[in-house]
Amino acid sequence: MPFRKTDSKGLYLEVFPNGSKLWRYKFRIAGKEKRMALGAWPDISLADARKRRDVARLKVLDGNDPTLERKRAKRLARMNAGNSFKSVAEDFIKVRMENSGKAPATIRKARWYVSLLVPSIGARPINDIEPIEVLEALKKIERKGHRESANRTRALASRVFRHGIVCALCKSDPAAHLGDALASPVVTHRAAILDPIKFGQLLRDIDEYTGTPLVRIAMQILPHIMTRPGEMRLGKWSEIDWGQKIWNIPAERTKLRRLHAVPLSEQVMLLLRELHCHTGGFEKMFPAQQSHLKYMSENSINQALRRMGYGPDLVTAHGFRSTASTFLNESGKWHPDAIERSLAHGDSNAIRGIYNRGNYWDERVQMAQWWSDYLDELRSGRKIVIGDFAKG
């Protein structure tokens, strides 16, 4: 049986049969005797135990029960742990992004932005976070030269706080007005060749590329189809409708989260048949060189362009889209909306986007073939300048 060694003013040391010792404070409140644990000896010395007793004793003299205050503090700590910025951010990503079908890449980026804030405010109860705390966390990112990341992280944090407001976990968004306190990101445009003669030389250089056949064919196809590099690189053979000459890119792989049908010209069909000779036995159209179970690296095309002598300030894989958009618009032959549909762009005018439901399919089919024919003319070395477009 345990026994006690008393000190004074209700403090005693309880000694257990196994040798452990625990400081306790005995007091009466509302006529009822109660006990409060103050910590184990020798971790808590006699002097420390007396200090803790004195703090609790003052609360009792004021008519407060220190054991109830301790229980409330523990409940608050548990509640705050579940309402930390990190936990609310995780709930936001799950409810507002994963359940809404956002692209895996978008979700990974959101988690990365949250990870930048976790060291500073991740464990803080979301309702207690002040604007200065968020700003200090963002300034750490900015001081590393990552201006755009700082601004995007602020935007993501603001969405997390607004999610917390909706869930009644916080009352305000301390990140809402911090944008003016951050340096504006340096705007960089994806490099693209907008001179027809120079682009023709690039097409010839691509044909002469001596690297892996898959990368060469990818570089040959991409200028024709006007998709984003990732939409092409992650393609599967099941998406190709050989009879209708259409590449159906599923919604989950597009930026606008909607199916994007790409009309395929005769030139692209020939390139796909060549590609099929290399990877037709696999699910993936552009598998990795080491394993057909993985996709070709997202940097493969840009690295190939660099090896060919085209620096990042001159051209990028994504820049092929800018080239197509510029040349097609300046040709004057095609409706701007047909071009935008081919590029899988959203409509910048919200009202116009609601009513403009046509996908210009017939015109897009004609445009795809015309565009491939024009690329062939550039490749052949025919000196066509922008002014010649409307005459073709």
Rank of each mutant, 00 (worst) to 15 (best):
T326I: 06
A338H: 11
P312R: 12
G281P: 02
M308G: 14
S297E: 12
G332L: 13
P336E: 00
G311V: 04
G281H: 01
H335M: 01
M285P: 02
A344R: 03
D337Y: 11
L343T: 05
V315T: 09
A317P: 12
T316C: 14
D337W: 04
H278S: 00
I339W: 10
F327W: 13
D347I: 09
A324C: 08
P312A: 02
S291F: 04
S331V: 10
L305C: 01
R321C: 04
I339E: 03
K294G: 01
R341P: 02
S297Y: 09
N349E: 12
S322G: 15
L343W: 14
M285W: 12
Q289Y: 08
Q289A: 07
M308T: 05
S297W: 12
N329G: 10
N329M: 09
P336K: 08
R307Q: 06
G346L: 03
G309V: 04
A344E: 00
M285G: 08
H292V: 15
T316R: 13
I339V: 15
E330K: 14
A344V: 05
S297H: 10
I339G: 01
G346D: 11
N349S: 13
D313H: 14
I339C: 05
Q303D: 01
A288N: 13
P336V: 00
T323V: 05
P287F: 13
S322P: 10
K333Q: 14
E330F: 03
S325P: 02
M285Q: 10
T326V: 03
S331A: 14
S342M: 15
Y295L: 09
S297L: 11
A304K: 11
W334K: 08
P336D: 02
F282S: 01
K333F: 05
M285L: 11
G319F: 12
G281I: 00
T316W: 07
Q290T: 09
H318N: 09
R307K: 10
E340F: 08
N302V: 00
I339M: 03
H345S: 07
V315M: 04
W334N: 09
N302E: 00
